[in-house]
């Protein structure tokens, strides 16, 4: 009864105070947001999105940007698989405790910083364009996949590996012929899941100048070309849909799940 009261009374009360404090600090002028002129200008802005722009040259440009986004997501994921696996081995405790904690720390930092923040940092080193997006995606995804891969490798049954090791097989061949194939379906499934996530990220990374559809969208929105922006949005949604279907198909084929 007591805990029930504390949950039913304290939790909502705490939430309301927190919400009130939040609303009080935000500078939003909600009254003017719903004023006649604001609503009219928003409707004017929204109207452009109803008719997406067409025309062969423009659609060709969008198609190229969509391919670029796809390439960013694929290459970024591939680089992250390689780097993630390299960091997952120490993270799974194969090379002792200090290496385990060190690689986990690196993975946590890589993962804590979102793709877009990485992109705006990488743009300084790699310059504007899809390459920066690829590297930024690889950084964040390495953090995510490295942790998941490490856990997958830890959860694999150790007996086959131990048997080979006891019979004199070197560490790497033992890993390559036992632990790795055992964990492979799990690793493939994590990779595909991350690819689905990365196509969404790659589509928007361009708003900080890292190439792909996002950069096209940012360009047209900056010029208030809403018809063109609408086409880009449709292309983003279509691309994400296609990748989701492809990834699901591959997952069933590779892992039987």
């Amino acid at each position: 009864m007591n805990t029930w009261v504390s949950k039913a009374v304290i939790a909502p009360l705490f939430f309301l105070v927190f919400l009130a404090a939040s609303i009080a600090t935000l500078s939003g002028d909600w009254a003017s947001l719903f004023s006649r002129t604001a609503v009219m200008s928003m409707l004017e802005f929204a109207r452009g999105f109803v008719w997406p722009a067409g025309g062969a040259p423009f659609l060709g440009k969008i198609f190229y940007a969509a391919l670029e986004t796809l390439a960013i997501s694929l290459l970024g994921t591939l680089l992250a698989v390689i780097a993630g696996l390299a960091l997952a081995l120490p993270a799974a405790g194969r090379w002792g405790l200090p290496a385990k904690h060190a690689s986990r720390f690196v993975l946590n930092v890589l993962r804590a910083i979102p793709e877009l923040v990485w992109a705006s940092l990488v743009v300084i080193a790699a310059g504007l364009g899809p390459f920066a997006g690829t590297v930024a995606l690889a950084f964040h995804t390495t953090g995510v996949l490295g942790r998941l891969f490490g856990e997958a490798l830890e959860n694999v049954a150790p007996e086959p590996n131990d048997t080979l090791r006891r019979n004199g097989v070197a560490a790497f061949p033992a890993f390559w012929y036992t632990t790795f194939p055992q964990a492979l379906p799990q690793l493939a499934s994590y990779t595909l899941y991350r690819w689905e996530n990365n196509i969404r990220a790659a589509a928007v990374l361009g708003v900080v100048g890292a190439g792909g559809l996002g950069q096209t969208l940012y360009f047209h929105l900056s010029l208030f070309q809403t018809h063109e922006a609408s086409t880009v949005l449709l292309a983003m949604i279509a691309l994400v849909g296609v990748v989701d279907v492809a990834s699901n198909h591959l997952r069933i084929k590779l892992t039987g799940r």
Partner: peptide, 23 residues
């Protein structure tokens, strides 16, 4: 299906820079 950052971009254009677009 439209990512939050794209909504934010759109509303920054429509209601101006600041917290409101994010909310």
């Amino acid at each position: 299906s439209i990512p939050e950052i794209v909504w934010a971009l759109l509303f920054v254009r429509a209601v101006g820079l600041g917290d409101t677009a994010g909310v």
